[in-house]
Each structure stands twice: as C-alpha cells, then as structure tokens.
Amino acid sequence: MTENTRKIGNTLLRVDDITLSFGGVHALNGVSFEIKEHEILAIIGPNGAGKSSMLNVINGFYHPQKGTIAFEGRERKRMRPHVAAEQGIARTFQNIALFKGMSTLDNIMTGRMLKMKRSFLWQALYWGPALKEEIENREFCEKVIDFLEIQAIRKTPVGKLPYGLQKRVELGRALAAEPRLLLLDEPMAGMNVEEKEDMCRFILDVNDEFGTTIALIEHDMGVVMDISDRVVVLDYGRKIADGSPDAVRANGEVIDAYLGVSHE
C-alpha cells in the first residue's frame, strides 16, 4: 500500500468540559476533546465508561448539564437529534436500528429523508418534481449500495439478512445522509474476523473517498490501533488519555484502567 496522503484539517467538533448525570450517577465528568476534519477518532474505555453517552451527547440525544459543544465553530446548547442530522452528523447504533420488514434499498432511502424537500402530498403523487427528486436520491443510494458491495441484497428484507450484512446496511443508511461527521457505535460488535476486516476496509474507504470524519466506539483493540488516527480513552466518565494509538497504548493510566491496578 502507498502512504496515505490524506490531510487532517482543522477542528470539526469540539466538546468542552461536558458533564452529564442521570440522578446521582455521573456518566460524563468534565470531558473535553476535539474531532478534527477528515480524521478517524476512536473512543475507547471499559464498560460503563460513558462512551455511548458521549456519542448521544454529540448527536443531541442527551443534553449535558454542563459544558458546550461546537460543531464547525458554532456553539450549541440544547439541540434535537434531527437538527444534528441536518447539520451533517449521522450515526449507527450499537443494537441495529433498521426497519426489519423493509428492503435494504428502502432502508438506505430513509437516510435520504432530509434531502427530500417535497411534501408528503407531492411524494404520494409521485409525479413531476417529486419524481425527479426521487430519482436523484435513488441514484445516490445506488452509489452507496455499489460502494458497500451489497447489490445482491438490494431487494432483500433486512430482517432476513445475517448480522454482519445488517451492520453494513446500517452504515449505508448513515452514508446516504452524506454526513460530514459519522458516529459509529461499535460497528464491529459480534462480527467474525472476516466481517471485521470487510468493515474496517469500508470505514477506511469512506474516510478516504469521501473525506468523511469518523468517530467510532470499538472494543477490538487490534481494530482500533489499526484504523484510527487518534484515540480518546474514557474511564468512569473521565477522559484519561488522548493521543496517537501508540502513545495511548503506552499510557500507564490506560493500562491500569483496562487491566486493573494492583493493590500492594
């Protein structure tokens, strides 16, 4: 392989001093970090460290009690997930959240909802501008299908697909929204080695071909170290490390968090 010439740019998203609690439980405690344009950032940490909460804060599902989030330099306080989506943040879920009875193509088309400007009535008429719009969006979805190599399951109901393929369809739906920032919550959980390799390749290709910034949560350390440019480590709601994969691997606090501290 040749050297990756991709440029990592300026800060795309900055989270600053985020604190999130549910009752007395502090899920996140004063966490700050940045996501830079075009990079692949991994968020890791033991169970209950607050990783998924962090993604939920970023895409506006949870509202932190304290702290600020700035996307493309614009700060926001309370924001609904659909606003985050309109701004260009898309995500996949730890437990697949697809429409099981719908085909792969239809599921991916739902990712284009925000791009479809015509009203429900127009769409029901399926004529003139609505038809044109549908065709344009279908074309984009077909490019996503081609990109993810899922042509053979285009018309298959998602519920009938094996788990690894469902994950791929979910990634396809997120890609259909043409996101600037893609949040992936454990994209490789429950996959076998071959499926993981495929998924890694797709994540790297998305990043490379479209320049999409990616933040992902993952437990497989091999994968994390291989594909990410930078790693943020959370433990008990606090950030304990932030740096290149090699630096994080050598960090004493990270080793303690994962392996436990001996009490001598």
Partner: peptide
C-alpha cells in the same frame, strides 16, 4: 479507481 487514489506511481 476505488481505493487507488493514493497510488501515485
């Protein structure tokens, strides 16, 4: 061309 953008030979 997919994935070949960085093959500059």
């Amino acid at each position: 061309p997919r994935g070949l953008r960085n093959y500059t030979q």
